[in-house]
């Protein structure tokens, strides 16, 4: 499934909810189901301090794909993290860098990604893209070395 397909799938998932509270019930469920980041990985270099909630992000690059695990102290933030991970996980870094996460707007949760929301999510997306960018440049260095 492409990144675009994954976004469309989420938009379709959300279409069945009629009101905000139902939407949030689903987000909370996603948040509760998201595997927690191990305590040992909640280190200073992985933390994104928001004014309202905190986020921890761990990014690895294996076999040409990015892998993300993340956690938050707030469950709604965690639910939205689950959605972001569902879209960006297992994608190659080039796709992630150029991705436009329009699904957030379409399901009406864009307020959570606004930098003024200060829940750490806007910075998390930025960090995910930065990790992808770093992976890309490490590939370039490796290619040069081979030449």
């Amino acid at each position: 499934m492409t990144l675009a397909d994954k976004q469309q799938e989420i938009i379709d998932d959300f279409a069945i909810y009629e009101d905000w509270m139902e939407k949030y019930e689903y987000i909370i469920e996603l948040g509760k189901d998201l595997p927690q980041l191990e305590e040992s990985k909640k280190t200073k270099d992985r933390i994104i301090e928001g004014c309202q909630s905190q986020v921890w992000l761990d990014a690895t690059y294996v076999g040409g794909k990015m892998h993300f695990t993340a956690d938050s102290d707030a469950i709604i933030t965690k639910g939205i993290i689950a959605l972001l991970i569902r879209v960006l996980n297992n994608e190659n870094p080039a796709e992630i860098v150029k991705s436009d996460l329009h699904f957030i707007q379409e399901i009406g949760l864009h307020e959570h990604l606004s930098p003024t929301r200060s829940n750490g999510l806007a910075s998390m997306v930025k960090k995910m893209k930065m990790a992808a960018l770093k992976a890309l440049s490490s590939d370039e260095v490796a290619q040069k070395d081979e030449k």
């Binding site: 909370i28 309202q52 909630s53």
Partner: peptide
């Protein structure tokens, strides 16, 4: 219950409160 979660759900029920520090 994290204050941010409570504040977000109250907001969607039309109630303006403040959450955080």
């Amino acid at each position: 219950v994290h204050p941010f979660d409570m504040g977000t759900l109250l907001d969607k029920q039309g109630i303006a409160v403040r959450t955080g520090h």
